[in-house]
Design a protein around this nucleic acid. Sequence first.
DNA 1: GCAGGAACTGACCGATCGGTCAGGTAAGGT
DNA 2: ACCTTACCTGACCGATCGGTCAGTTCCTGC
Lengths: 212, 212
Amino acid sequence: MQIEPEDLVPAAAATATATVRPGAGAELRVMALQQFAAVGFAGTSLQQIAASAGYSKSSVLYHFASKDALLGEVLTPAIERLEAILGGFTSTSENAASRHRFIEDFVDFLLQYRLEVHVLINQAQSLKGIAVIDRARALIVRLGDALCQEHATTIDRMRFGVALGGAAYSLVAGLTFFDEDITPTDDLRPALITLLSELLAPVAVRTTQPRK
Amino acid sequence: MQIEPEDLVPAAAATATATVRPGAGAELRVMALQQFAAVGFAGTSLQQIAASAGYSKSSVLYHFASKDALLGEVLTPAIERLEAILGGFTSTSENAASRHRFIEDFVDFLLQYRLEVHVLINQAQSLKGIAVIDRARALIVRLGDALCQEHATTIDRMRFGVALGGAAYSLVAGLTFFDEDITPTDDLRPALITLLSELLAPVAVRTTQPRK
DNA sequence: GCAGGAACTGACCGATCGGTCAGGTAAGGT
DNA sequence: ACCTTACCTGACCGATCGGTCAGTTCCTGC
């Protein structure tokens, strides 16, 4: 890993050609993300990424130092967004309102970065050496701790895992099983909020209420 | 690694047999399944599978016609078990008892074939051409139809997706995030049954539980 | 002893992998 | 005009991929 040469809108701010050029780097990131989510990081070749964006393999390696670095740049925005959400949640006093607010933020995060989340959730274990992946793993552990706190029973931990894995699955992989072109985001958001509230609320209530 | 293949199959080879041979083939299936679940089908090479079992790559291709065929033999037992469970469920009249019975069977299935399920759930879309994968995809769609029936609102479908993806995730991928060596199966089973009942029961008995 | 089959392997094949390198092209500043 | 810089590419590299094939070893039935 190293510092990337530079590709983020250098000429865009320079002159008025910004409208014509969306930027090769950004375009490659999008195509790479789609392929990583569809067939996995190991199953995606630089050749395929380049071809799907209309470039050559050498161009990909010009914009990104390596395949690993490309993965890092693809996933980093999602990780930073989630870190911000988690930071905002842990810095406030925990109650039903703050937890509901967190779930709403988290659902919006899932909807915006669904492909990134899918890659992180399903391939984190197989990409353990890569820096951005380790960072994401640590973040997910922190997320679990923040929601479950110290006295984590098996079912509490599993509520978190099911909510996380289930949301990631149903937003990407699950849709491919049935004919899609359905399920607009407007429909998905309230459904997800309801489901995650059901799954995660008991974990919260447990910390405030003595017993049931 | 280690493993001397001969002490695993001493007597089995003695008697003539038309059935499936326990021995090298079974051992290779186990190692292949672990690798497929850990690093993905595309990320697993025949070389790695062979080495982890103490054989050569040629041996793998002697026992299995191809890498795809190996995947097929690895996943088929799980698919057939799930087909049997689903068949038993759809052939009975649907009520709360039969549905609870189905969830118990399904949880036991998940626990027994957790690696196979993980592979199917997370890699089905990227392996679409392979016969056993297409068979599993059709089965999962049938499973969703059986549980959701015709009046499938977005949240109902999502309950099924979250339950399926969440269970598969928390049984394999989720465990690797936290310190494992915990979560014995005895603990997992009732927790899973509780969670899946919560998620899937409302789909069945929409009229019973008007939440909040 | 010997024939024959099952189990297993090394050598090898064409294709593709991630990655390097030299060079080409167009735009801009001077 | 000249040089620099950003962008992009084809040719090439060693390694590894899935798969084929000829051959060796060992066991069993005759």
